[in-house]
Amino acid sequence: MKAVFDEFDAYLQAFGYTLALFLVSGVLSLLLGTVLVAMRVGPVAVLRSAAGVYVTVVRNTPLVIVFAFFSFAGPTLSIQFNWFKVSIGDYDFTSLFCYAVLSLTLYTSTFVCEALRAGINAVPLGQAEAARAIGLPFGGVMRQVVLPLAFRAALPPLASVQIALIKNTSVAAVFGIAEATANMRSLLNDFGATQRFGIFACFALGYIVIVEVFSFLSYRLERRWRVAT
């Protein structure tokens, strides 16, 4: 445990990267997931099946392989982020960070899509029918009536998906980002003989704090947003 406190700044910075990965890919995955679900339930058959295939394939692929694909096949496909170099304080966000965000976003958005689709199924039939009856086209039905209701109904599963994302950011460690799990591995490498339980406890605590704060916030949001029944 002493090893962690000796370099407490490194510990905090590692969790900073974890949080940054989570926040950026969390927002992006919600956006992409919403687009995907609109395609999946929409009237255009081609988009419906394209989104369906995408969701099925990516959902069933291990996240590590999604990461590996973009890290190694990315340059071949001109998916490159060499131009991307942002430094905020002590944090350097480089092309590795972009690949991680891209992989996490594409992977998580499929789960967001499925959660929202379940949410749409939970919207009472009368709502969509009433929206159509007043003449709204598909875009209007979705934007103004169904999706707002679906988001509220799907809030608990969406929160679960985002919590899974918090934990999945650890996979970025495999691909060279100095976030919490990578930091723990290198500390265990150096001090593992004597302090491994302390080191593990510190890092587990960090993740637990992030997860618990997030689930508390989403629980509050859920109570405030609950659809009157």
Binding site: K167, N168, T169, S170, V171, A173, V174, A180, T181, M184, R185, L188, G192, R196, F200, F203, A204, Y207, I208, V211, E212
Partner: peptide, 18 residues
């Protein structure tokens, strides 16, 4: 609650070192 909130990868690395 503990094991649900901790990433599997973190657990894996720790178990591996243990």
């Amino acid at each position: 609650e503990f094991f649900r909130a901790v990433p599997v990868l973190l657990l894996m690395v720790f178990t591996w070192f243990v």
